[in-house]
Write a protein that binds this DNA or RNA. Sequence first.
DNA 1: AGGCGTTCCTGGGGGC
DNA 2: TGCCCCCAGGAACGCC
Length: 278
Amino acid sequence: MPELPEVQTVVNHIRPKIIGKQLMTIIPIWEKTLHNFNKDDIHGIKNNNKIIDVYRRAKFIIIEFTDKIIAIHLRMTGKLYISKNSTYPKHATAVLEFDDNESLIFEDVRKFGRIYLYDDLKVINSKHGPEPLDKNFTVELFKGMIKSKNRNIKALLLDQSFLSGLGNIYVDESLWESGIHPNSISSSIPVKKISTLHNKIQSILRNAILKKGTTIIDFSVNGESGKYANDLSIYGKNNKACFRCNSIIIKLKVAGRGTYACTKCQKKYDKKSTRIKC
DNA sequence: AGGCGTTCCTGGGGGC
DNA sequence: TGCCCCCAGGAACGCC
């Protein structure tokens, strides 16, 4: 499931290949893929159809034109890659065709992935929290964010309106590295632990980007595999020994997700703070 | 406010 | 071998 490092890897891969190209058409093979527009609406791009930049915001791949952006979300099983073939693979859900007979293929087995057309980033920014690797995402900011909520920490870290980019794998890894049980309540986590969590989220994401992401089930870039799978400490390791304390890792369900944890060395901070009513 | 269930989808795994 | 059932999960949405 593509999270921040996987999306960044896709961006790094396609960016140099499509900057400067002109978008001619979008072919919606699976109609619902174009979420807030239809293929005729890209006439709005027509006069300024040259791609000027490609970058990531949250888990979106942003393709920027002079006065429009196309935002692509891979969701669970989406893949995005350049192709020179005129035939499309079995699970292609949409195709962006360029002026030079090359295409950007959006392939998505489970069809959850979506493409959006916006004037700018405003809509996406309004629904998303800070970027965890941004210099403005400071320890002090994070402490305030965590302490201001009385929520299950895993649910909170998965919430894109709270913090952008994390998904099931990197949340479990970050909590394990920090020694925090996924069923902890955010407001009761000690500030020192929040500081550790901030540090671990950043180091895990940076390392995962260097390794080109994690290969689990569906993610790959043109057959090239991510190497972070070799660095996973907790995700998918149920019934195995914890690398840190050697006790057995369990699988549980938290926030509706399959969750891996070591109950011995991940401490549960679960006292809800009493709120003062005014 | 926050938690929970439901929906969208299909391939793959378990059971027999 | 084959068939049926169920499950995985990011995000949006409605309900309590």
